[in-house]
C-alpha cells in the first residue's frame, strides 16, 4: 500500500526484468505442481465473492473494457496477458517506487472489497502462473 517501503523483492525483480528485456515469456508447464498451480489459478480467476460480487474475470476477460477511465487488460487473450505481464515491474508516481505485479494484484483485491492478499502467497503464485501461461498460449 501507499507509504510502504520497497523491499529486496522489488530490487531483484527490477534487475531480472532488465536482464530479460526482449526475452520470450514462456513459463514452464511441465512439473505437476506447475499444472496444479495453473488449474487452481484458473479457478481463482473465475471465483466470484465479496460484497461487490467480483472475480478477476469480471474485469479481465473482455477487451476494450475499463473501470471509470482505467483501461482493463483482457488477461484471457494472449496480447492482453503479455502486455500486462510485460508492463511490470513499473515505477508508480503515486508510490514513488518501483512496484511489482503482485503489488498491483493486492490492490485489485482491495478494490474488489476482499480481505488483504498476502505477498508471496499461494494465490499470487497460482494467478501469476495462469497469467504467464496465457502469455505463452498461442504465442
Amino acid at each position: 500500500m501507499r507509504g510502504d517501503l520497497g523491499t529486496e523483492i522489488e530490487a531483484l525483480v527490477t534487475w531480472l526484468a532488465a536482464e530479460s528485456e526482449g526475452a520470450t515469456i514462456a513459463p514452464e508447464q511441465t512439473h505437476p505442481a506447475e499444472r496444479e498451480m495453473y488449474a487452481l489459478g484458473e479457478e481463482i480467476f473465475f471465483y466470484r465473492a465479496g460484497p461487490h460480487d467480483f472475480s478477476c474475470a469480471t474485469c479481465h476477460e473482455q477487451s476494450e473494457m475499463r473501470i471509470r477511465l482505467q483501461s482493463l487488460p483482457d488477461l484471457t487473450s494472449h496480447t492482453g496477458a503479455a502486455d500486462a505481464w510485460g508492463s511490470w515491474p513499473a515505477y508508480r508516481i503515486s508510490q514513488g517506487l518501483v512496484r511489482t505485479m503482485g503489488w498491483r494484484m493486492r490492490d485489485c483485491f482491495r478494490q474488489q472489497r476482499w480481505p488483504e492478499l498476502q505477498m508471496g502467497s499461494d494465490d499470487q503464485h497460482c494467478a501469476a502462473n495462469v497469467h504467464g501461461s496465457e502469455c505463452r498460449r498461442r504465442a
Binding site: 479457478e43 480467476f45 473465475f46 471465483y47 474475470a57 484471457t76 472489497r113 480481505p115 502467497s121 494465490d123
Partner: peptide
C-alpha cells in the same frame, strides 16, 4: 488456498470469501 493467501484487514473480513449460491454457480471456469 484462499484461506492461506488472504488475511482479514479492518472491515474486509475473511467471511467475504464465502460464496453465496449465486456466486457458486456463476464461478464456472471458462
Amino acid at each position: 488456498v484462499l484461506e492461506s493467501s488472504f488475511v482479514a484487514k479492518n472491515q474486509a473480513t475473511m467471511a467475504r470469501l464465502q460464496q453465496d449460491a449465486v456466486q457458486k454457480v456463476c464461478s464456472a471456469p471458462r
